[in-house]
Nucleic acid binder design. Structure first.
Lengths: 342, 342
DNA sequence: ACCGCGGGGGAGAGCGCTCTCACGAGCGGT
DNA sequence: ACCGCTCGTGAGAGCGCTCTCCCCCGCGGT
């Protein structure tokens, strides 16, 4: 049964056909297709004309079989896809990644390591199906990632928590400077009694933001000890807000380490009739959709997630291109998005 | 493992190597790998043992070159990736799709048709790089999709708006029954003065939900004319809520055609001291993250987006498998998620 | 004149797999 | 005993590229 679902495949033109049409050898066409500099200009033109006329498209499989390069890279997600993409941060990370990749000949393979744990994904990556991989949303405990070492170049989105045997390449965001930025903004708008609803104290990202918060306050000679840790949820944010108000009723600004917690804080404030930004200014963190869903738009620190995606691709392409001395740590800066809440 | 006489060069084992190790021909190994029934059981075992010992992984490129089947399918997104994945609906559609695909040998290629318009993506799909494609988030005006016709089997997520020359395959959700489900739930919990905050009246999905709303009320002999259209935003929902209250202050239930509008309605109700679900019950639509972000969890109609993704894969696999009489229209039912608001 | 050299282009051997054929063995029917 | 089958397996020809040789030609130096 050679017929596949009745799709009459018109024999796609091959390199050979182009070569014949252009009156040159296969090798020459190949050179033109791959942009080799050692073909005379006029020959290049003839070949390109033939390519255009025949509508030739290189066969990826043949190419990668012959060159043992696949021209595809894996986006390795070590968890459920819907959870992954449901996170706006990763959605836009992927967006930046894809946009950067669009300029190249590379194709993105979505590889999910859900069950197993990761057996299939590891086999896929190690099996020579991709030239490199970008690993995102990895967490402590994803030890199977170690099995990828020594196969293809890998770039991590976020500093990997897994103990790897050699220094990994990764891109990460500068949380400290994010906290600093947010706090400076509050200071510059004249606030002086500034507190922070921080994230869990066992997450380095949360602690780094606190560090930035403190640095800004210290530089300004303001007290830096009004800090309550919460768990990155809206209700946690609301509770933290109440705690802070109880402790220090004359607060005039809050730096919340996540937008979600900020929305909780906003709710808590609203229910007490405290106006934002009139009485208290709030800066969030993430620039998630939650930032614009409430009545007041949330001023927040955006993680340059697109840039991170693009950077991850850049690093990987350099690695694949054999560039020497590619930096292992690639830290991108954060950016303040000013709306109404501060 | 390195042999005594061999070079230390660790070269990925090929079919040939397995064949030699197992003492059979390449063809036989190929048969085993591809699950051909015509190999004796004991031979299968020997071969599988050899495969396991050598850690053999088939070379995808070679396989697809020889068979002219790529074993990969495209997820074609005709718009910006971050916007696409930022939508929880699509995130989980993709999740379902991926999960279903995980049981197969197929791999997902993320293909974005952003600029161009779609030139590169069309070339990619037509160029024989994938066996089939799933097109999502397509809109009126995406005429380039027509150029895909006649290349590989295509399944659309959502009924395509583009004028195609032959009946497309698609999966879609049953909006009418979603509206019906939500409204029935309100009726069954004893509500009798039920209104709807509907979506824009030029979107068929919105109108279908209204139709379901009406059907439920008519069946119950309740008035079905308390309907205000809004634009699917939170502030639109809040305004619609105020309008409804002004019109009919004794309302005891609301069916909101989106979760976002429902959150707006909740805000409006809270500011008037109307309790949910005490005074007024609310059912939303989508089961987006917004449904769980507020103080009260939103009872809502979940679009079975995962199921849709999985169904799209099923349909495509059937098409690829040459199954006859694959249905073109695949409508999946909606599902009620009960939380606190109703 | 000669030689050497370098650049442009052709020839051809694979890359690792699939798949059609051919082949031999075993078996039942006549 | 013969034929004709089926069944399991092997042989070998590609699939469409890349890439290493190698050759040819024109040039400059001696």
């Amino acid at each position: 049964m050679p017929t596949i679902t009745g799709h009459p495949e018109r024999h796609a033109p091959t390199l050979e056909a182009v070569a014949e049409a252009a009156g040159v050898s296969r090798a020459t066409v190949s050179r033109v297709v791959n942009g080799s500099p050692s073909v005379r200009g006029e020959v290049v033109e003839v070949v390109q004309k033939a390519i255009a006329e025949l509508g030739y498209v290189p066969n990826r499989a043949a190419r990668s079989l012959a060159s043992s390069r696949t021209h595809s890279i894996a986006l390795l997600v070590p968890e459920d896809v819907s959870r992954f993409f449901g996170d706006p941060y990763f959605a836009s990370f992927t967006g930046g990644l894809d946009r950067r990749l669009a300029d190249t000949e590379y194709v993105l393979n979505l590889v999910v390591a859900r069950d197993d744990p990761g057996r299939k994904a590891v086999r896929y990556v190690r099996g020579g199906n991709v030239d490199g991989a970008i690993v995102v949303s990895h967490h402590r405990g994803h030890d199977f990632l170690r099995q990828l070492e020594g196969s293809v170049p890998i770039v991590y989105g976020g500093r990997p928590d897994v103990a790897l045997s050699s220094a990994p390449y990764f891109v990460d965001v500068d949380n400290e400077s994010g906290g600093y930025l947010a706090t400076r903004h509050l200071i510059e708008s004249g606030r002086t009694r500034i507190a922070s609803i921080a994230g869990p104290d066992d997450m380095s990202a949360a602690l780094d933001r606190v560090a930035g918060f403190r640095r800004a306050l210290q530089e300004a000679g303001l007290p830096d000890d009004a800090i309550v840790h919460a768990n990155f949820t809206a209700s946690g944010g609301a509770e933290a807000m109440r705690t802070l108000l109880a402790r220090q009723p004359d607060l005039d600004a809050i730096f919340s380490a996540s937008d979600l917690m900020a929305t909780g804080a906003l709710t808590a404030l609203a229910s007490r009739g405290i106006s934002v930004p009139g009485d208290i200014a709030i800066v969030g963190y993430d620039d998630s959709p939650a930032a614009t869903w409430g009545e007041v738009g949330l001023t927040t620190v955006r993680q340059p997630s697109e840039l991170m995606g693009a950077t991850a691709v850049d690093v990987l392409l350099q690695l694949l291109g054999g560039v020497a001395d590619v930096p292992h740590e690639n830290i991108v800066p954060t950016e303040l998005v000013i709306r109404n809440s501060a």
